[in-house]
Computed example of a mutant assay.
Amino acid sequence: MHHPYDVLTPDSLAMLQVISETGSFAAAARQLGLVPSALTYRVRQIEDALDVLLFDRTARQARPTEAGAELLREGARLLREIDAVANRVRRVATGWEPQLTIAVDGVVSPHTMLELVEAFYAMAPPTHLKLRDGILTGTLEALTSGHADLAIGVSVEGSNVAGLQQGLLGELLFIYVVAPHHPLASVPEPLTDATLLQHRAVAVADSAQRGGATMGLLGGQDVLTVDTMQAKVQAQLRGLGGGFLPEPMVRPYLEAGHLVARRVARPERNMRLHYAWGGPGFTAAGRALQWWLNQLQSPATRRALLENHHHF
């Protein structure tokens, strides 16, 4: 009798996936370039070694049994892990990461980010890039939870995270703005908390999976919560509420008269933003991460990431 080691090879796991996807032994045999009897024989070998039935043969289609479905699930995971090992080995050989994930906060200029992406691809690196949206503590959490390799626009301290490294991106002024037809546009300044409390605020949901933070909200205030900074700008342009927004992001709307800035009694919000990398288990930056960190050394690039919001 065969040992599971002999039959649970990447090749046979991939074969089982094909049978499940095509729904029949005949179709799977065609796709794999095997004669149906050879395919059936290989499946029976696996079933004998594990002492289970993997496919229900009474139906016209090859439907996985519960045991078969479990093997397919675990098999898919094993195949992914084999891919990951191969990627890691290739990365070690070339110094390039197979994938680099960057968490980008909603206050960061998407135009400048895409210009950097363009420059990155111009080197024809073997690295797949993945950009993730982040808001407030979620931008840092993507990094510390292992879902990102670099976080740009971190507004919270991550100094308590082992191995985390960060650099200063710059300071960003948040100003309170409303649409010209909003009631708060014509109230005498400075606007007190008591006045603001009577009107709806527009807030961006923190993208952190747990906990999360809010900015500039008052207890008991009606709040419209949206998912992105762009949606917050649009909601405030429509007069659906008021709120703090980064000055570079709203500058064109202020100049065109589509939004008005109001002075509030609470102090102006100047936010220090960082970029961060590393964290638990981090050893050394691969060539892709190193390239991005080199770009972030440039004061002009850092400034553009915070200010270049309307480059068409």
Rank of each mutant, 00 (worst) to 15 (best):
L289V: 09
Q166N: 11
L72I: 09
K232R: 13
T214D: 11
E97G: 04
L100M: 11
G239V: 08
V156E: 12
A208S: 15
L197V: 07
Y5H: 14
P280T: 06
L100F: 04
L245M: 14
R263E: 15
R80A: 13
R30C: 04
V233P: 08
Y275S: 04
F25V: 14
L217I: 15
D227T: 11
R80V: 10
I19V: 15
L254E: 08
L305R: 04
D56F: 03
L218S: 07
V202M: 04
P248W: 05
A162S: 12
R73H: 11
Y176R: 05
A84C: 07
P246D: 00
Q31I: 09
V260E: 06
T228I: 09
Q234D: 15
R91L: 02
T283F: 08
T65W: 01
L172S: 09
G158V: 03
E115S: 11
G220D: 09
L131E: 04
A288C: 05
R60Q: 13
Q61K: 11
G279Q: 01
R90K: 10
A86L: 13
V260S: 04
V154N: 01
T137P: 02
H310R: 09
E157W: 04
A285H: 00
N294A: 15
E74Q: 13
E81T: 04
M215S: 08
T40P: 02
Y253V: 04
G134R: 00
H199K: 04
N87V: 06
V204T: 12
N294H: 12
Q17I: 14
G220V: 08
M15H: 03
S145C: 06
A231S: 12
A38Y: 11
D193E: 14
A256M: 10
T127A: 02
N270L: 15
A231C: 04
R251Q: 14
A49V: 10
Y41Q: 15
V264T: 14
H274A: 07
G216N: 11
S37R: 15
N160Y: 13
A231Q: 14
V107G: 03
R60N: 12
A205L: 13
L39V: 13
L254Y: 05
V89M: 11
T195E: 15
A122C: 05
L237R: 07
D105K: 02
P183E: 05
G95Y: 03
G257Q: 08
E66Q: 10
A276C: 05
T101M: 09
E141C: 02
L218Y: 08
M271A: 12
T301P: 03
T144I: 15
A185I: 11
S186T: 15
G211V: 07
S37G: 08
